[in-house]
Design a binder for these strands. Structure first.
Lengths: 201, 201
DNA sequence: GTCTATACATAGATAGAC
DNA sequence: GTCTATCTATGTATAGAC
Protein backbone atom coordinates (compact mmCIF):
# COMPACT_ATOMS: atom_id res chain seq x y z
CA UNK A 1 0.00 0.00 0.00
CA UNK A 2 3.03 2.25 0.42
CA UNK A 3 3.65 4.59 -2.48
CA UNK A 4 6.75 4.00 -4.53
CA UNK A 5 7.54 7.67 -4.14
CA UNK A 6 7.73 7.49 -0.38
CA UNK A 7 10.44 4.90 -0.54
CA UNK A 8 12.89 7.10 -2.42
CA UNK A 9 16.38 7.26 -0.95
CA UNK A 10 17.05 10.41 1.04
CA UNK A 11 19.57 11.46 -1.58
CA UNK A 12 17.38 11.20 -4.64
CA UNK A 13 18.62 12.54 -7.92
CA UNK A 14 18.26 16.22 -8.60
CA UNK A 15 15.41 15.89 -11.06
CA UNK A 16 13.34 13.98 -8.54
CA UNK A 17 14.15 16.43 -5.77
CA UNK A 18 12.98 19.26 -7.99
CA UNK A 19 9.68 17.50 -8.67
CA UNK A 20 8.96 16.72 -5.04
CA UNK A 21 9.96 20.17 -3.83
CA UNK A 22 7.93 21.81 -6.57
CA UNK A 23 4.88 19.78 -5.60
CA UNK A 24 5.19 20.94 -2.03
CA UNK A 25 5.64 24.61 -2.96
CA UNK A 26 2.87 24.61 -5.55
CA UNK A 27 0.58 23.08 -2.95
CA UNK A 28 1.55 25.63 -0.33
CA UNK A 29 1.62 28.82 -2.38
CA UNK A 30 0.20 27.99 -5.79
CA UNK A 31 1.97 27.47 -9.09
CA UNK A 32 1.77 31.00 -10.45
CA UNK A 33 2.94 32.50 -7.21
CA UNK A 34 5.88 30.15 -6.81
CA UNK A 35 8.86 31.60 -8.66
CA UNK A 36 11.62 29.53 -10.19
CA UNK A 37 14.01 31.32 -7.85
CA UNK A 38 12.08 30.19 -4.79
CA UNK A 39 11.95 26.66 -6.10
CA UNK A 40 15.68 26.64 -6.86
CA UNK A 41 16.41 28.01 -3.39
CA UNK A 42 14.32 25.31 -1.74
CA UNK A 43 16.11 22.61 -3.71
CA UNK A 44 19.49 24.16 -2.99
CA UNK A 45 20.29 25.34 -6.50
CA UNK A 46 20.49 28.59 -8.41
CA UNK A 47 17.56 29.36 -10.67
CA UNK A 48 19.48 28.86 -13.89
CA UNK A 49 20.29 25.28 -12.95
CA UNK A 50 16.64 24.24 -13.00
CA UNK A 51 16.60 24.71 -16.75
CA UNK A 52 19.21 22.08 -17.22
CA UNK A 53 16.65 19.53 -15.96
CA UNK A 54 13.45 21.01 -17.37
CA UNK A 55 12.88 23.14 -20.42
CA UNK A 56 10.35 25.37 -18.66
CA UNK A 57 8.52 25.94 -15.42
CA UNK A 58 5.43 24.44 -17.01
CA UNK A 59 7.31 21.21 -17.66
CA UNK A 60 7.95 20.96 -13.92
CA UNK A 61 4.25 21.29 -13.21
CA UNK A 62 3.49 18.55 -15.70
CA UNK A 63 6.05 16.31 -14.01
CA UNK A 64 4.50 16.93 -10.60
CA UNK A 65 1.07 15.93 -11.85
CA UNK A 66 2.15 12.96 -13.92
CA UNK A 67 4.34 11.61 -11.17
CA UNK A 68 1.54 11.59 -8.63
CA UNK A 69 -1.26 10.27 -10.77
CA UNK A 70 0.80 7.50 -12.33
CA UNK A 71 1.58 6.24 -8.89
CA UNK A 72 -2.06 6.05 -7.79
CA UNK A 73 -3.07 4.40 -11.07
CA UNK A 74 -0.53 1.65 -10.51
CA UNK A 75 -1.80 0.98 -7.03
CA UNK A 76 -5.43 1.04 -8.13
CA UNK A 77 -4.79 -1.46 -10.92
CA UNK A 78 -3.10 -3.81 -8.49
CA UNK A 79 -6.03 -3.48 -6.10
CA UNK A 80 -8.64 -4.25 -8.73
CA UNK A 81 -6.63 -7.16 -10.10
CA UNK A 82 -6.59 -8.98 -6.80
CA UNK A 83 -10.10 -8.11 -5.70
CA UNK A 84 -13.45 -8.78 -7.34
CA UNK A 85 -16.15 -8.12 -4.76
CA UNK A 86 -18.00 -4.87 -5.60
CA UNK A 87 -18.17 -3.64 -2.02
CA UNK A 88 -14.53 -4.44 -1.30
CA UNK A 89 -13.47 -2.75 -4.53
CA UNK A 90 -15.43 0.40 -3.76
CA UNK A 91 -14.13 0.63 -0.24
CA UNK A 92 -10.61 -0.24 -1.41
CA UNK A 93 -10.58 2.47 -4.06
CA UNK A 94 -11.80 5.04 -1.58
CA UNK A 95 -9.16 4.05 0.95
CA UNK A 96 -6.42 4.00 -1.65
CA UNK A 97 -7.41 7.39 -2.98
CA UNK A 98 -7.45 8.90 0.49
CA UNK A 99 -4.13 7.37 1.48
CA UNK A 100 -2.63 8.84 -1.65
CA UNK A 101 -4.03 12.27 -0.83
CA UNK A 102 -2.94 12.15 2.78
CA UNK A 103 0.59 11.11 1.87
CA UNK A 104 2.55 14.24 1.02
CA UNK A 105 3.47 13.42 -2.56
CA UNK A 106 0.05 12.19 -3.63
CA UNK A 107 -1.65 15.14 -1.97
CA UNK A 108 0.65 17.64 -3.63
CA UNK A 109 0.04 16.09 -7.03
CA UNK A 110 -3.71 15.95 -6.45
CA UNK A 111 -3.71 19.56 -5.41
CA UNK A 112 -1.85 20.51 -8.56
CA UNK A 113 -4.32 18.52 -10.66
CA UNK A 114 -7.26 20.34 -9.14
CA UNK A 115 -5.95 23.85 -8.78
CA UNK A 116 -3.34 24.35 -11.47
CA UNK A 117 -4.97 22.69 -14.43
CA UNK A 118 -5.70 25.99 -16.14
CA UNK A 119 -2.07 26.99 -15.95
CA UNK A 120 -1.21 24.29 -18.46
CA UNK A 121 -1.07 25.10 -22.15
CA UNK A 122 -3.24 22.96 -24.42
CA UNK A 123 -0.24 20.86 -25.46
CA UNK A 124 0.83 20.26 -21.88
CA UNK A 125 -2.67 19.19 -20.93
CA UNK A 126 -2.81 16.22 -23.25
CA UNK A 127 -0.59 13.73 -21.43
CA UNK A 128 -2.13 14.68 -18.11
CA UNK A 129 -5.62 14.32 -19.46
CA UNK A 130 -4.77 10.85 -20.69
CA UNK A 131 -3.53 9.78 -17.29
CA UNK A 132 -6.48 11.41 -15.62
CA UNK A 133 -8.96 9.61 -17.80
CA UNK A 134 -7.24 6.30 -17.20
CA UNK A 135 -7.72 6.79 -13.49
CA UNK A 136 -11.33 7.88 -13.80
CA UNK A 137 -11.97 4.87 -15.96
CA UNK A 138 -11.01 2.63 -13.06
CA UNK A 139 -13.47 4.43 -10.82
CA UNK A 140 -16.07 4.23 -13.54
CA UNK A 141 -16.12 0.43 -13.49
CA UNK A 142 -16.20 0.30 -9.73
CA UNK A 143 -19.05 2.77 -9.37
CA UNK A 144 -21.17 1.19 -12.06
CA UNK A 145 -20.83 -2.14 -10.28
CA UNK A 146 -21.59 -0.56 -6.93
CA UNK A 147 -24.79 1.07 -8.20
CA UNK A 148 -25.84 -2.22 -9.80
CA UNK A 149 -25.40 -3.92 -6.42
CA UNK A 150 -27.24 -1.26 -4.43
CA UNK A 151 -24.12 0.05 -2.71
CA UNK A 152 -24.82 3.58 -3.94
CA UNK A 153 -27.72 5.41 -5.53
CA UNK A 154 -27.95 7.88 -8.40
CA UNK A 155 -26.57 8.61 -11.85
CA UNK A 156 -23.18 6.84 -11.97
CA UNK A 157 -21.43 9.68 -13.80
CA UNK A 158 -22.63 12.34 -11.41
CA UNK A 159 -21.96 10.04 -8.51
CA UNK A 160 -18.37 9.55 -9.61
CA UNK A 161 -17.66 13.23 -10.16
CA UNK A 162 -19.34 14.18 -6.91
CA UNK A 163 -17.51 11.52 -4.94
CA UNK A 164 -14.06 12.28 -6.33
CA UNK A 165 -14.53 16.02 -5.88
CA UNK A 166 -15.57 15.52 -2.28
CA UNK A 167 -12.64 13.26 -1.52
CA UNK A 168 -10.19 15.52 -3.33
CA UNK A 169 -11.40 18.57 -1.51
CA UNK A 170 -9.98 17.17 1.70
CA UNK A 171 -6.51 18.25 0.59
CA UNK A 172 -7.66 21.74 1.42
CA UNK A 173 -8.63 21.22 5.04
CA UNK A 174 -7.68 17.83 6.45
CA UNK A 175 -4.51 17.74 8.57
CA UNK A 176 -3.31 14.33 9.79
CA UNK A 177 -2.00 15.96 12.98
CA UNK A 178 -5.44 17.24 13.94
CA UNK A 179 -8.47 15.90 15.77
CA UNK A 180 -8.85 12.79 13.62
CA UNK A 181 -6.06 10.38 12.78
CA UNK A 182 -6.00 9.24 9.15
CA UNK A 183 -7.73 5.91 9.77
CA UNK A 184 -10.58 7.42 11.77
CA UNK A 185 -10.90 10.21 9.27
CA UNK A 186 -11.17 7.89 6.31
CA UNK A 187 -13.77 5.90 8.22
CA UNK A 188 -15.90 8.99 8.83
CA UNK A 189 -15.46 10.21 5.31
CA UNK A 190 -16.56 6.88 3.94
CA UNK A 191 -19.72 7.04 5.99
CA UNK A 192 -20.48 10.55 4.77
CA UNK A 193 -19.68 9.75 1.16
CA UNK A 194 -21.11 6.23 0.85
CA UNK A 195 -23.73 5.70 3.54
CA UNK A 196 -25.18 2.70 1.71
CA UNK A 197 -21.83 0.94 1.87
CA UNK A 198 -21.74 0.78 5.66
CA UNK A 199 -21.51 -2.70 7.18
CA UNK A 200 -24.43 -1.89 9.48
CA UNK A 201 -26.82 -0.85 6.73
CA UNK B 1 -35.22 32.92 -5.77
CA UNK B 2 -33.64 35.19 -8.37
CA UNK B 3 -30.34 36.75 -7.36
CA UNK B 4 -30.30 40.48 -6.81
CA UNK B 5 -27.26 40.62 -9.04
CA UNK B 6 -29.07 39.25 -12.04
CA UNK B 7 -31.58 42.05 -11.97
CA UNK B 8 -29.03 44.80 -12.50
CA UNK B 9 -29.86 47.28 -15.24
CA UNK B 10 -27.93 46.63 -18.46
CA UNK B 11 -26.11 49.92 -17.97
CA UNK B 12 -24.82 49.29 -14.46
CA UNK B 13 -22.29 51.64 -12.99
CA UNK B 14 -18.67 51.14 -13.90
CA UNK B 15 -17.64 49.70 -10.57
CA UNK B 16 -20.26 46.98 -10.84
CA UNK B 17 -19.37 46.24 -14.43
CA UNK B 18 -15.74 45.81 -13.38
CA UNK B 19 -16.72 43.35 -10.66
CA UNK B 20 -18.94 41.24 -12.89
CA UNK B 21 -16.48 41.20 -15.77
CA UNK B 22 -13.62 40.36 -13.43
CA UNK B 23 -15.59 37.47 -11.99
CA UNK B 24 -16.15 36.08 -15.46
CA UNK B 25 -12.51 36.44 -16.50
CA UNK B 26 -11.12 35.08 -13.25
CA UNK B 27 -13.41 32.10 -13.67
CA UNK B 28 -12.37 31.53 -17.25
CA UNK B 29 -8.63 32.10 -17.03
CA UNK B 30 -7.74 32.39 -13.36
CA UNK B 31 -6.92 35.43 -11.30
CA UNK B 32 -3.14 35.43 -11.66
CA UNK B 33 -3.34 34.90 -15.39
CA UNK B 34 -5.88 37.65 -15.96
CA UNK B 35 -4.03 40.94 -16.40
CA UNK B 36 -5.47 44.30 -15.51
CA UNK B 37 -5.09 45.24 -19.16
CA UNK B 38 -7.29 42.34 -20.25
CA UNK B 39 -9.85 43.21 -17.63
CA UNK B 40 -9.87 46.87 -18.63
CA UNK B 41 -10.23 45.88 -22.28
CA UNK B 42 -13.19 43.63 -21.53
CA UNK B 43 -14.90 46.41 -19.58
CA UNK B 44 -14.13 48.94 -22.29
CA UNK B 45 -11.61 51.01 -20.36
CA UNK B 46 -7.88 51.63 -20.33
CA UNK B 47 -5.97 49.86 -17.60
CA UNK B 48 -5.15 53.00 -15.67
CA UNK B 49 -8.82 53.75 -15.22
CA UNK B 50 -9.43 50.64 -13.15
CA UNK B 51 -7.35 52.13 -10.38
CA UNK B 52 -9.75 54.99 -10.00
CA UNK B 53 -12.35 52.46 -8.80
CA UNK B 54 -10.11 50.01 -6.93
CA UNK B 55 -6.81 50.55 -5.17
CA UNK B 56 -5.37 47.27 -6.44
CA UNK B 57 -6.11 44.18 -8.46
CA UNK B 58 -6.47 42.26 -5.22
CA UNK B 59 -9.24 44.61 -4.12
CA UNK B 60 -11.15 43.62 -7.25
CA UNK B 61 -10.84 39.95 -6.36
CA UNK B 62 -12.13 40.67 -2.87
CA UNK B 63 -15.10 42.49 -4.35
CA UNK B 64 -15.91 39.59 -6.65
CA UNK B 65 -15.94 37.17 -3.75
CA UNK B 66 -17.79 39.37 -1.28
CA UNK B 67 -20.41 40.31 -3.84
CA UNK B 68 -21.28 36.71 -4.61
CA UNK B 69 -21.24 35.27 -1.14
CA UNK B 70 -23.23 38.09 0.40
CA UNK B 71 -25.96 37.48 -2.11
CA UNK B 72 -26.26 33.77 -1.32
CA UNK B 73 -26.21 34.47 2.41
CA UNK B 74 -29.14 36.84 2.04
CA UNK B 75 -31.16 34.29 0.14
CA UNK B 76 -30.30 31.50 2.54
CA UNK B 77 -31.35 33.56 5.54
CA UNK B 78 -34.67 34.30 3.91
CA UNK B 79 -35.17 30.64 3.14
CA UNK B 80 -34.47 29.51 6.67
CA UNK B 81 -36.65 32.24 8.14
CA UNK B 82 -39.73 31.09 6.28
CA UNK B 83 -39.14 27.37 6.56
CA UNK B 84 -38.69 25.14 9.60
CA UNK B 85 -39.02 21.54 8.45
CA UNK B 86 -35.58 19.85 8.52
CA UNK B 87 -36.01 18.02 5.21
CA UNK B 88 -37.38 21.08 3.41
CA UNK B 89 -34.53 23.19 4.80
CA UNK B 90 -31.88 20.74 3.69
CA UNK B 91 -33.33 20.38 0.23
CA UNK B 92 -33.91 24.13 0.01
CA UNK B 93 -30.33 24.97 0.93
CA UNK B 94 -29.00 22.51 -1.61
CA UNK B 95 -31.21 23.91 -4.34
CA UNK B 96 -30.38 27.49 -3.44
CA UNK B 97 -26.67 26.77 -3.43
CA UNK B 98 -26.83 25.07 -6.79
CA UNK B 99 -28.93 27.81 -8.36
CA UNK B 100 -26.37 30.31 -7.15
CA UNK B 101 -23.53 28.31 -8.68
CA UNK B 102 -25.32 27.77 -11.96
CA UNK B 103 -26.18 31.43 -12.31
CA UNK B 104 -23.22 33.21 -13.83
CA UNK B 105 -22.46 35.65 -11.05
CA UNK B 106 -22.78 33.20 -8.20
CA UNK B 107 -20.72 30.60 -10.04
CA UNK B 108 -17.98 33.09 -10.80
CA UNK B 109 -17.80 34.16 -7.18
CA UNK B 110 -17.84 30.58 -5.95
CA UNK B 111 -15.09 29.71 -8.34
CA UNK B 112 -13.02 32.61 -7.05
CA UNK B 113 -13.64 31.51 -3.47
CA UNK B 114 -12.42 28.02 -4.19
CA UNK B 115 -9.57 28.62 -6.57
CA UNK B 116 -8.17 32.04 -5.78
CA UNK B 117 -8.21 32.04 -2.01
CA UNK B 118 -4.42 31.72 -1.77
CA UNK B 119 -3.96 34.80 -3.94
CA UNK B 120 -5.36 36.94 -1.14
CA UNK B 121 -3.02 38.54 1.37
CA UNK B 122 -3.74 37.80 5.04
CA UNK B 123 -5.42 41.19 5.46
CA UNK B 124 -7.64 40.70 2.45
CA UNK B 125 -8.70 37.27 3.65
CA UNK B 126 -10.31 38.47 6.83
CA UNK B 127 -13.53 40.00 5.52
CA UNK B 128 -14.01 37.09 3.14
CA UNK B 129 -13.42 34.57 5.87
CA UNK B 130 -16.05 36.28 7.98
CA UNK B 131 -18.63 36.06 5.22
CA UNK B 132 -17.64 32.52 4.46
CA UNK B 133 -18.08 31.43 8.05
CA UNK B 134 -21.45 33.11 8.25
CA UNK B 135 -22.61 31.04 5.31
CA UNK B 136 -21.15 27.81 6.64
CA UNK B 137 -22.84 28.51 9.94
CA UNK B 138 -26.21 28.41 8.20
CA UNK B 139 -25.36 25.03 6.71
CA UNK B 140 -24.11 23.89 10.08
CA UNK B 141 -27.55 24.28 11.67
CA UNK B 142 -29.30 22.62 8.79
CA UNK B 143 -26.99 19.61 8.68
CA UNK B 144 -27.06 19.05 12.43
CA UNK B 145 -30.83 18.99 12.29
CA UNK B 146 -30.82 16.70 9.29
CA UNK B 147 -28.54 14.18 10.99
CA UNK B 148 -30.68 14.31 14.10
CA UNK B 149 -33.72 13.47 11.97
CA UNK B 150 -32.04 10.64 10.07
CA UNK B 151 -31.89 12.54 6.78
CA UNK B 152 -28.14 12.03 6.54
CA UNK B 153 -25.54 9.91 8.28
CA UNK B 154 -22.05 10.62 9.60
CA UNK B 155 -20.03 13.25 11.43
CA UNK B 156 -21.85 16.55 10.79
CA UNK B 157 -18.66 18.55 10.28
CA UNK B 158 -17.20 16.14 7.76
CA UNK B 159 -20.60 15.78 6.16
CA UNK B 160 -20.87 19.54 5.68
CA UNK B 161 -17.40 19.94 4.24
CA UNK B 162 -17.82 16.95 1.97
CA UNK B 163 -21.22 18.06 0.77
CA UNK B 164 -20.23 21.64 0.04
CA UNK B 165 -17.04 20.59 -1.71
CA UNK B 166 -18.96 18.20 -3.90
CA UNK B 167 -21.58 20.77 -4.81
CA UNK B 168 -18.98 23.46 -5.41
CA UNK B 169 -16.94 21.21 -7.64
CA UNK B 170 -19.72 21.30 -10.19
CA UNK B 171 -18.59 24.76 -11.28
CA UNK B 172 -15.72 22.93 -12.92
CA UNK B 173 -17.66 20.59 -15.12
CA UNK B 174 -21.41 21.25 -15.23
CA UNK B 175 -22.69 23.20 -18.23
CA UNK B 176 -26.39 24.17 -18.27
CA UNK B 177 -26.42 23.78 -22.07
CA UNK B 178 -25.37 20.14 -21.87
CA UNK B 179 -27.10 16.79 -21.44
CA UNK B 180 -28.92 17.74 -18.24
CA UNK B 181 -30.99 20.89 -17.77
CA UNK B 182 -30.43 22.64 -14.43
CA UNK B 183 -33.52 21.21 -12.74
CA UNK B 184 -32.79 17.63 -13.74
CA UNK B 185 -29.17 18.07 -12.81
CA UNK B 186 -29.94 19.38 -9.34
CA UNK B 187 -32.32 16.46 -8.87
CA UNK B 188 -29.63 13.93 -9.77
CA UNK B 189 -27.05 15.68 -7.69
CA UNK B 190 -29.34 15.67 -4.69
CA UNK B 191 -29.82 11.95 -5.02
CA UNK B 192 -26.07 11.37 -5.23
CA UNK B 193 -25.29 13.72 -2.36
CA UNK B 194 -28.16 13.00 0.00
CA UNK B 195 -29.58 9.56 -0.76
CA UNK B 196 -31.36 9.40 2.60
CA UNK B 197 -33.31 12.54 1.78
CA UNK B 198 -35.09 11.01 -1.20
CA UNK B 199 -38.89 10.97 -1.01
CA UNK B 200 -38.88 7.27 -1.95
CA UNK B 201 -36.58 6.16 0.85
C1' DG C 1 -13.93 59.71 -14.58
C1' DT C 2 -10.99 58.43 -18.37
C1' DC C 3 -7.05 59.02 -20.97
C1' DT C 4 -1.72 58.67 -22.29
C1' DA C 5 2.60 57.72 -20.91
C1' DT C 6 5.60 55.65 -18.06
C1' DA C 7 7.83 54.18 -13.66
C1' DC C 8 9.28 50.26 -11.29
C1' DA C 9 9.52 45.52 -10.03
C1' DT C 10 9.76 40.93 -11.06
C1' DA C 11 8.98 37.09 -13.89
C1' DG C 12 10.95 33.17 -16.92
C1' DA C 13 14.63 31.94 -19.57
C1' DT C 14 19.44 32.00 -21.83
C1' DA C 15 24.70 32.17 -22.52
C1' DG C 16 28.89 30.88 -21.48
C1' DA C 17 32.52 30.20 -17.77
C1' DC C 18 33.86 26.76 -14.60
C1' DG D 1 25.75 19.73 -13.76
C1' DT D 2 25.96 24.17 -11.51
C1' DC D 3 27.31 28.70 -11.44
C1' DT D 4 27.09 34.07 -12.51
C1' DA D 5 25.32 37.48 -15.14
C1' DT D 6 21.97 39.22 -17.85
C1' DC D 7 18.32 39.56 -21.57
C1' DT D 8 13.69 40.41 -22.54
C1' DA D 9 8.95 40.50 -21.64
C1' DT D 10 5.32 41.58 -18.91
C1' DG D 11 3.13 42.65 -14.78
C1' DT D 12 0.86 46.25 -11.44
C1' DA D 13 0.43 50.76 -10.38
C1' DT D 14 1.13 55.96 -10.69
C1' DA D 15 1.22 60.95 -12.50
C1' DG D 16 -0.71 64.40 -14.64
C1' DA D 17 -3.31 66.16 -18.85
C1' DC D 18 -7.93 66.44 -20.50
Amino acid sequence: MKSALETLPPEADTRTRIILTAGRLFHRHGYERTTVRELADAVGLKSGSLFHHFRSKEEILVAVMANGIQSVINEARALLARNHDPAARLEGMLRLHMHSIISGVGGDAMHAMIYEWRSLSPEAREPIRTLSEAYEQLWHQVIDDAVAHGLARGDPIILRKYLLAGLNSTVRWYRPEGRLAPEAFIQQLQQAALPDLQPDS
